[in-house]
């Protein structure tokens, strides 16, 4: 049923388009091409900037498109919800499925680029990749379920989400280097914590850093250059990801419960 629904969403998305799913592939390809060019012309502090950018951005795109379409999923399918009894959770889950489809396609483009462009993979760090993906999936599912149920009752959740995603995006080291943040914030202390620790409380930051460690790697900086990623050991990164994964699992449990609690009233609220 879930697969059928995902298939339907994809078919609808690519209906009457000649290239179909190729559009999903084209997106990162163009990104890589444009940034490779721009960086060559302007010069940049970050070596292999396209790889750095996309390793974080693809994960972020998965999170944000799951959230945006997931938050509308129940409302957009109001006629189904009001007329047919079926497990309501498959609606947001299908949104996540569609985003996952894009994520897998685009990631394969990125992986191919990393392999072919000479950036190459770094072995111990690459092992973080599956862990980062698992954390991303669980966290996204939890937040999407929660938002989709809430949006049925309060429609301004959708508007809030758009603004929130914008702020969240810039709070997360996707386009800029995490190392710079680490440098600036380390010395600042808020209450009893240093600001860098607070910064890491953002689960998206940890997930994105995980992806960047896995794919971009921590090649020792050339003399006279600053590192790109925040300086931390592989063990610390793994620990952080595991911690977020644990929290995300807890969140998923809560979100799942609250979704079920609310889903009984969906037909009435719509």
């Amino acid at each position: 049923m879930l697969l059928n629904l995902v298939r339907k969403e994809l078919k609808v998305k690519y209906t009457a388009s000649v290239l179909g799913a190729i559009w999903s592939l084209l997106n990162p390809v163009v990104f890589l091409a444009v940034f490779s060019f721009v960086v060559r012309v302007l010069g940049n502090l970050v070596p292999d900037y396209p790889v750095f950018l996309l390793s974080g951005l693809l994960a972020w795109n998965f999170l944000s498109s799951s959230l945006t379409s997931g938050s509308r999923s129940v409302i957009d399918n109001a006629n189904l919800v009001k007329k047919i009894a079926f497990p309501r959770e498959i609606l947001p889950l299908a949104s996540i499925g569609v985003a996952l489809f894009d994520f897998v396609l685009q990631s394969s483009v990125l992986l191919a680029f990393i392999a072919l462009s000479g950036h190459g993979f770094q072995l111990p760090e690459l092992l973080l990749y599956p862990l980062a993906i698992a954390t991303l999936l669980v966290f996204t599912t939890a937040v999407t379920l929660w938002v989709s149920a809430l949006n049925v009752r309060y429609r301004d959740v959708g508007h809030l989400l758009n603004l929130g995603l914008l702020v969240w995006f810039w709070l997360t080291p996707i386009v800029y280097q995490g190392y710079l943040v680490q440098e600036k914030l380390r010395s600042v202390s808020v209450l009893w914590f240093d600001a860098w620790t607070l910064y890491l409380l953002n689960p998206a930051t940890v997930i994105v850093l995980g992806f960047q460690h896995a794919l971009y790697g921590v090649s020792p900086p050339a003399p006279g250059q600053e590192p790109v990623l925040p300086v931390m050991s592989l063990g610390a990164m793994t620990g952080l990801l595991l911690a977020v994964l644990g929290v995300a699992c807890g969140l998923l449990l809560l979100a799942w419960r609250s979704f079920f609690d609310r889903s009984g009233d969906f037909a009435e609220e719509l």
Binding site: K8, V12, L80, K82, K83, I84, F86
Partner: peptide, 30 residues
């Protein structure tokens, strides 16, 4: 429950695709 015939038919999908989609909503496996 037949509350509305063809609830959830998607206009952009073919009849065949809609049959599969609709029947799966009503609880049928592929």
């Amino acid at each position: 429950a037949l509350l509305e015939l063809g609830a959830g038919f998607h206009p952009d999908l073919t009849g065949r695709e809609n049959v599969y989609l609709n029947a799966s909503f009503l609880g049928l496996s592929r």
